[in-house]
Computed example of a mutant assay.
Amino acid sequence: MNSKDYLFEAETVWEDLGNGIRRQIMGYDDQLMTVKVEFEAGAVGSLHAHPHSQTTYVASGTYRFEIGSEKKIVKGGDGLYIAPNVVHGVICLKRGILIDSFSPVREDFLK
């Protein structure tokens, strides 16, 4: 299972997740997936956990992340790592975009 080699923003569908959040899947194979997630100010990524390793690059905006029991404010240019099965969530304080990478692929995103 692989994505196309090139995924252009203008040709890639945004999936509306509701409540001011939408995402574009920007490439994947069985072991890796990159996803662009756009947040409106006030949007909440509810606390959750998954078995995937995750890194996030803050492309723009300001967010309050909670990873495990630690809460921090991050902004454009910052990054973070979330270990498998660790509870985490986010509140968008200033509209922006996150670039999430997952290993292995988030098959639930492809359904």
Rank of each mutant, 00 (worst) to 15 (best):
residue 82 I to D: 05
residue 60 S to A: 08
residue 51 P to A: 13
residue 45 G to K: 01
residue 41 A to W: 06
residue 19 N to D: 15
residue 8 F to G: 01
residue 86 V to S: 01
residue 57 Y to N: 06
residue 83 A to C: 04
residue 105 V to C: 10
residue 98 L to W: 09
residue 65 F to T: 04
residue 106 R to G: 03
residue 107 E to W: 12
residue 77 G to V: 08
residue 75 K to R: 12
residue 18 G to L: 09
residue 105 V to L: 13
residue 59 A to T: 07
residue 9 E to P: 01
residue 62 T to F: 08
residue 29 D to H: 15
residue 8 F to M: 10
residue 21 I to F: 00
residue 55 T to A: 13
residue 2 N to F: 04
residue 108 D to I: 05
residue 60 S to L: 01
residue 67 I to H: 02
residue 83 A to Q: 12
residue 13 V to Q: 15
residue 111 K to G: 12
residue 90 V to D: 14
residue 17 L to A: 03
residue 15 E to D: 06
residue 4 K to F: 01
residue 31 Q to W: 13
residue 50 H to E: 12
residue 23 R to G: 04
residue 10 A to D: 14
residue 109 F to T: 03
residue 62 T to G: 00
residue 5 D to R: 08
residue 82 I to F: 01
residue 56 T to Y: 07
residue 67 I to F: 04
residue 62 T to C: 08
residue 108 D to C: 06
residue 26 M to S: 07
residue 47 L to T: 01
residue 15 E to V: 07
residue 74 V to A: 14
residue 37 V to R: 05
residue 104 P to G: 15
residue 89 G to M: 12
residue 73 I to R: 03
residue 20 G to Q: 02
residue 71 K to R: 14
residue 51 P to M: 11
residue 59 A to N: 08
residue 80 L to H: 01
residue 56 T to W: 07
residue 104 P to Y: 15
residue 78 D to K: 05
residue 88 H to R: 06
residue 45 G to H: 07
